[in-house]
């Protein structure tokens, strides 16, 4: 659906090229929710804006839905943008227009539908995001979550196949964030909408994304399925994001575990294995005692997962490790 070939971007500052995005390749499939995560200045915002050419690439090729975006002239670019939705961190609604006028605006600009057809489509969209009653209010009269829903309805007005989300939940409180993410997941499921979102919160990635790319200093440093990247982070930046999400300080934890006797290992479960009674079985079979040092059981999008850090003492530790290895879990021996 979206393909980037050696796309890069540099800004001219005082006659010098400052690279914002090093040459990067990326492939995003149809119907996928793809997350780009990075700290501010990592280049994720630039990358997102290259997709609808709010930023002009310095080189490389971008192909979206079979169309070479980099080759479009200004007329072609306008038509192309009309088929792409975008939502923003600060919503960017027109304060001088009502909710209904905001939502209908992309259709009015495109100028293809009659006034009545637009009004009907706007009604539909407002129903879809649960704001039918607010149609004649102005954005200033709405809460943050409601404003973002208007933003989403507006982005969907022209029935695009792709939705770009620029830090769409960063200005919202946790509860509202959950509701907006849920809405995005629904749209992805029900309309087959391809979603590209950027964020600096691993939590957002974990809750809605299928795949993720981690960005650091203008480069994609790691990418893959969310479960893979989240549970087995390789790059230091990714590890930091995961730790932030789990509110774990690895160094402090390491120091704490120094006083714990026995072997320390980390088990990672995914899917149904998360709920299997594995620990008891292994303990009985190998005669080890275990204590749980740290742990978390949660979901990645719709898949449950668990991650436990254990200390094993007594019994046949090698047999226990062999049992774990034979089971449907990922085993890391930490000490």
């Amino acid at each position: 659906m979206i393909e980037l070939h050696q796309v890069h971007k540099a800004y001219q500052v005082n006659g010098r090229d400052i690279p914002a995005l090093h040459p990067c390749d990326l492939h995003i499939g149809r119907g996928e929710v793809f997350g780009l995560i990075g700290h501010s200045g990592a280049g994720k915002s630039t990358l997102l804006r290259l997709l609808n050419r709010l930023e002009q690439p310095s080189g490389g090729r971008i192909v979206i839905d079979g169309e070479d975006v980099t080759a479009l002239d200004s007329q072609g670019l306008r038509r192309f943008r009309q088929r792409l939705g975008m939502i923003f961190q600060h919503f960017n609604l027109l304060s001088s227009k009502t909710v209904a006028e905001n939502v209908g605006m992309p259709l009015q600009l495109a100028g293809e539908l009659s006034r009545r057809a637009i009004a009907q489509r706007v009604d539909e969209l407002l129903q879809r995001v649960g704001l039918a009653e607010q149609a004649h209010k102005y954005p200033a009269q709405l809460s943050g979550g409601q404003k973002q829903r208007v933003g989403i309805a507006r982005a969907l007005a022209t029935a695009p196949k792709i939705l770009l989300c620029d830090e769409a939940t960063s200005a919202l409180d946790p509860q509202t964030t959950g509701q907006v993410l849920q809405l995005l997941a629904e749209l992805n499921r029900e309309l087959g909408l391809t979603i590209v979102l950027i964020t600096h919160e691993m939590d957002v990635i974990r809750r809605v994304c299928d795949r993720v790319a981690v960005m650091d200093a203008g480069r994609i440093v790691e990418q893959g399925a969310v479960a893979q990247v989240f549970l087995h982070p390789q790059h230091p930046t990714t590890q930091r994001f995961v730790q932030e999400d789990e509110a774990v300080d690895a160094d402090a934890q390491h120091a704490d575990f120094a006083h714990v006797p026995g072997r320390i290992l980390r088990l990672t479960f995914q899917g149904e294995a998360t709920y299997a009674p594995l620990l008891g079985q292994v303990a009985r079979r190998s005669g080890v005692d275990y204590s749980i040092l740290a742990g978390r059981i949660d979901r990645i999008k719709d898949v449950p997962y668990g991650q436990l850090t254990l200390a094993l003492t007594g019994g046949d530790i090698d047999a226990a490790l062999a049992c774990f290895q034979a089971a449907d879990v990922h085993l890391e021996v930490l000490r």
């Binding site: 670019l77 943008r81 792409l84 960017n92 001088s96 605006m105 009015q108 600009l109 495109a110």
Partner: peptide
């Protein structure tokens, strides 16, 4: 707000539409 201009651009507005449909009303 610059964001409003950006959002209008992202909708596929021409420069003329940006001026008359977004900038001046805002």
């Amino acid at each position: 707000d610059r964001g409003i201009i950006e959002a209008t651009q992202a909708m596929g507005a021409s420069t003329r539409q940006i001026i008359f449909r977004a900038l001046l009303p805002e």
